[in-house]
């Protein structure tokens, strides 16, 4: 089912006004990210999108501890990162100004519960799409695809050069993460769960673990902080499609809205701009945007 878009005069007025505001305040607000267009859409009565637009505010769950993706700098009011760029774009399509977005920290463990109990409206938090999760919550997208890699100490880079060398090797990742499960299940690694990736990196430096694993983008950031001692090794050995979490999972209208919005951000150049301003800062090239999965 598709709904008909009819742009009203009022909407056009709001767009013009918000663009003017954005132009004026450009240096202060989103100065380091991509500019967001705020425009009201026309949503079916009673849909979640209509409710968000009506309320003029939305709460989005993001990571606060992943540089380049979702990261809250101490002392800053709002987090930064690629996930935040996507969140601002989605909110803009609901007619919500960036400053009216409530950023709520979600960690790997509480993303489903937060969606289920309404603590957050959407989750954009390096949230890998998988069937187990889709049985509980909805996941639109993907809007970005990365892959799991391994971070090791420089001197071990020759011996541990890929996931197949991880058997009985002590590998650190965040408690309950997909990455940790992957290396335990597929490569026989010994799991060492910690609550943050930075704690994992300290364990690697302390030599209490021999590898840290998670999405390559995150590992590159840490390797860049200590390039003499740490190295990212091997090919990406999984595909981690990041999706936007919503609830309930049978809200097809919401899924289609999110997928359409992601595609628009790709088409209008916002996606690439946002990537370059965030993850791209670590030196990796802007990848080709992913195809979105069809909605259920």
């Amino acid at each position: 089912m598709r709904f008909v878009r009819t742009k009203t005069l009022a909407t056009a007025g709001v767009v013009a006004l918000s663009m003017a505001l954005a132009a004026c305040g450009g240096d202060e607000s989103g100065g380091d990210g991509a500019e967001v267009e705020v425009e009201e859409g026309d949503f079916p009565e009673g849909s979640q999108m209509a409710e968000f637009q009506e309320a003029g505010e939305i709460t989005i769950g993001v990571k606060f501890d992943q540089p380049g993706i979702g990261f809250q700098q101490p002392g800053e009011d709002t987090p930064t990162g690629f996930d935040i760029e996507i969140g601002e774009y989605v909110a803009g399509k609901l007619g919500i100004e960036p400053e009216n977005i409530g950023w709520r920290e979600t960690v790997s463990d509480n993303r489903e519960p937060f969606l289920e109990n309404g603590t957050v409206d959407l989750v954009i938090a390096s949230y890998t799409i998988n069937e187990e999760r889709r049985a509980i919550v909805g996941q639109a997208g993907p809007y970005y695809t990365t892959g799991q890699q391994i971070l090791v100490r420089e001197e071990d880079a020759e011996t541990i050069d890929g996931p197949d060398k991880l058997s009985e090797v002590s590998v650190c990742s965040v408690t309950g993460s997909t990455s940790l499960e992957n290396v335990v299940r597929d490569y026989g690694a010994e799991p060492a769960p910690f609550d943050t990736y930075s704690a994992c990196v300290r364990q690697l430096q302390n030599e209490t673990v021999d590898a840290v694993t998670t999405d390559g983008a995150i590992l590159l950031g840490y390797a860049a902080q200590d390039p003499d001692n740490l190295e990212v090794v091997g090919e990406e050995f999984s595909e981690e499609p990041y999706g936007i979490g919503y609830y309930p999972n049978d809200d097809t209208e919401m899924c289609e809205f999110l997928n359409e919005t992601i595609q628009q951000s790709i088409d209008d150049g916002y996606w690439a701009e946002g990537f370059e301003a965030t993850l791209g800062q670590s030196g990796i090239e802007t990848p080709d945007p992913p195809e979105q999965d069809p909605c259920p």
Partner: peptide, 9 residues
């Protein structure tokens, strides 16, 4: 920690 693992698996 297994609670988190089960959550995943």
């Amino acid at each position: 920690a297994q609670l988190s693992r089960m959550n995943e698996q």
